[in-house]
Design a protein around this nucleic acid. Structure first.
Length: 633
RNA sequence: GCCACUGUAGCUCAGUCGGCAGAGCGGCUGAUUCGUAAUCAGCAGGUCGGGGGUUCAAGUCCCUCCAGUGGCUCCA
């Protein structure tokens, strides 16, 4: 029997040797890292006997498939431990995920003490290095083995006729599973339960509520420790903590989901707006402001009343019903419709940065990244069909420019027609194809999210991640054929006929709130100089220099820099420390030496060294960094 | 909205078995006049998230409401 190893080397072996034995023999120096194998490209247990000519390669934790196997094995151990702790628990399934794994159980609500018991049980199993043992069984045997677990019975029933049904034993615990697994539980020393939570009962069913246990797994405890350390560092970047520390924004119990922007946070918002408006000017937009409240009838026209009403704040006044706008589109539609329009006006690009209100479910609120009052860098483009491609290209360019400025990694998602939608399927398909064409033309990678479009249009979404790796949607580009029709929008074409325009709804940074929430975590509160609420802090060494320090501050302020003085009630080292902790980009020390020379000692954030510069040199340097919107000071 | 957990000074957090409400930072006052990540001393600051209950006695136990956290669902 011939087995082809990685690199094309062929070895002749007796039939029946296990994949693990052969790999350990042929690749002894790396064998301790092998947790499973690829047999003809299919992941298998190391214990799998080789019976025919085949290609064989080892799998390690460094391989995506290997990682999945380790995580999935960890899920089995979690299930074993939970069933040992709560015997009436019914395991459902436990797949690997992007950042670890979970296992869902039908079980009473868990409490922290359950986790302690589970950890103890898992540690015993890991210590004992219990092997994962595969058995292939008949459908009848399987049905008998899992007779008390309706979930497993369902999986068995869903398994196509003719497919092998396998189970894995971990000690006395047995789970229905296709495999493969790591050889034994000794591999799971780096297993850590992150937490547990109840799952939403599937809507409209009387299915029992499930509990999810989430975890991560690494081949060694040291790797787990490294992961936990990174995670702790990420938690320290939490925008909610930084926002409190730097006095950027505030949330009060009385107003859940409604951020208060404090003076320093407001600087961030205004700088973002300025940045975005510069683009709007270049790209030919006009800015408008439309009402925050519209009567019900307008939302009936737009479709929001039918499709979005549950997420709206609604006010009853004098027997009429008003809704607080959750989106800017109705206002822009009404502007377009307010008079006869010519094709010569198109593309008509109307931007609006108005506060929007959305009644987000209480349990979904999350710092700045999920709020009930928000402002988008929003705009609506009224276009002729043949103008769409060019406009989309400009938008994708702007996205690249903006996210590059912030050094944020972003990804695209093309979201297609959802289950609840307005309009005709054919129109949707046309719009989806147009968006896909734009993405292809720009050469950026993207993912298709089937069925996740808005109710009125398919969209290209932009996603970024927070410090813990959780994805958040920021920008969105929606190609809408429905709303123009519903509002009866028309323009007169060159042919003298009336036509309905296409509307692109688009926001790029998304909302100031969410964008800043994510960006604060991205930069860990160390804002680029152009965004920093305080750009320069002047530290007079003693009282004698306070007057000069105030003069310098005023001089910098007159040049447009945000500067302040930290007067010498505290020691200089303490004020230097304070400036560093406040993440001030430039700290200027002014003492006798500097007073004599008309210079300043410049300390740049994050650098222990300081440079002496003339006042003019410093201001020219700082202003240049700010104007260029450099990322670092 | 659903499940679990949490809520003590402006912030971060201690508070044992139900028995006098604490610390550090920050703030204020004073002293120090200081050269690149914490000078020293003193003082103020609390309806222990709100309401109800059990108890001789509740920050602590129970119920309930509110808010937050982690997930779920949803979404910019």
């Amino acid at each position: 029997m011939n087995v082809t190893l990685p690199g094309g080397r062929i070895v002749r072996v007796p039939a029946g040797i296990s994949a693990g034995e052969l790999l350990a023999r042929e690749l002894p120096e790396r064998a301790s890292s092998f947790l499973a194998a690829l047999l003809d490209g299919r992941p298998v247990d190391l214990a799998t006997p080789l019976t025919t000519d085949a290609e064989l390669a080892p799998l390690t934790f460094a391989d995506r498939a290997g990682r999945d196997i380790l995580e999935h094995s960890a899920a089995h151990l979690v299930a074993k431990a939970l069933v040992a702790t709560i015997p009436e628990a019914r395991p459902t399934h436990g797949p690997p995920t992007e950042e670890g794994f979970f296992y869902d159980f039908e079980v009473r609500p868990l409490v922290p003490a359950d986790l302690d018991a589970m950890r103890a049980a898992m540690d015993r199993s890991i210590e004992a290095r219990e092997p994962f043992v595969r058995r292939e069984i008949s459908r009848a045997e399987a049905n008998e083995l899992f007779a008390s677990n309706p979930h497993k019975l369902r999986y068995i029933a869903e398994t196509p006729e003719g497919e092998t049904i396998s189970v894995y034993y971990t000690g006395a615990f047995v789970d229905l599973c296709r495999g493969p697994h790591v050889p034994d539980t000794g591999w799971l020393a780096g297993l850590h339960i992150l937490g547990f939570s109840g799952l939403e009962r599937e809507a409209g069913t009387d299915a029992p509520a499930l509990q999810r246990v989430r975890g991560v797994a690494f081949p060694t405890r040291a790797e787990l420790q490294a992961y936990l350390k990174l995670r702790a560092e990420a938690e320290a970047r939490d925008h909610r903590a930084i926002g409190t520390k730097q006095e950027l924004f505030l949330f009060l119990d009385e107003t859940p989901g409604f951020p208060f922007w404090l003076p320093k946070g407001m600087v961030l918002v205004r700088e973002l707006e300025t940045y975005v408006r510069e683009h709007l000017r270049r790209a030919g937009y006009a800015e408008v402001r439309t009402p925050l409240l519209f009567p019900q009838s307008v939302y009936e026209t737009s479709g929001h009343w039918e499709m979005y009403r549950e997420d709206m704040f609604v006010s009853e006044l004098e027997g009429r019903t008003f809704g607080w706008k959750p989106m800017n589109c109705p206002g822009s539609m009404l502007i377009f419709r307010s008079r006869a329009r010519s094709y010569r006006e198109l593309p008509l690009r109307l931007a609006e940065f108005a506060p929007l209100h959305r009644y987000e479910a209480s349990g979904t609120l999350h710092g700045l990244t999920r709020v009930r009052e928000l402002v988008q860098d929003d705009a609506h483009l009224f276009l002729m069909e043949e103008q769409i491609d060019a406009e989309l290209a400009v938008l994708l360019d702007w996205i690249r420019e903006a996210f590059t400025t912030f050094r944020l990694e972003w990804s695209y998602e093309l979201s297609t027609r959802p289950a609840r939608f307005l309009g005709e399927v054919a129109t949707w398909e046309k719009a989806e194809a147009t968006l896909e064409r734009a993405l292809r033309a720009s050469g950026v990678p993207y993912r298709v999210a089937a069925g996740e479009g808005g109710f009125y249009a398919p969209k290209i979404d932009i996603h970024v991640r927070d410090s813990l790796g959780r994805p958040w949607q920021t920008g969105t580009i929606q190609l809408d054929y429905q709303m123009p029709q519903r509002f009866g929008l028309q323009y007169q074409g060159a042919d003298g006929q009336l036509h309905t325009p296409v509307v692109v709804h688009r926001t790029i940074l998304g909302t100031w709130e969410r964008f800043l929430g994510v960006f604060i975590e991205h930069c860990a509160g160390r804002f680029p100089p152009w965004l920093a609420p305080v750009q320069v802090r002047v530290l007079p060494v003693t009282d004698r220099h306070a007057e000069a320090a105030r003069g310098l501050r005023d001089e910098l302020a007159s040049l447009g820099l945000r500067a302040e003085v930290a007067s010498p009630e505290e020691s200089l080292p303490k004020r230097v420390r304070g400036a560093e902790l406040d993440r001030i980009p430039y700290t200027l020390v002014l003492g006798d030496r500097e007073a004599e020379q008309g210079s300043v000692a410049v300390r740049v954030r994050g650098s222990k060294e300081n440079r002496t510069m003339s006042r003019a040199e410093f201001s020219a340097y700082a202003l240049d960094r700010v104007r260029r919107r450099e990322y670092d000071p």
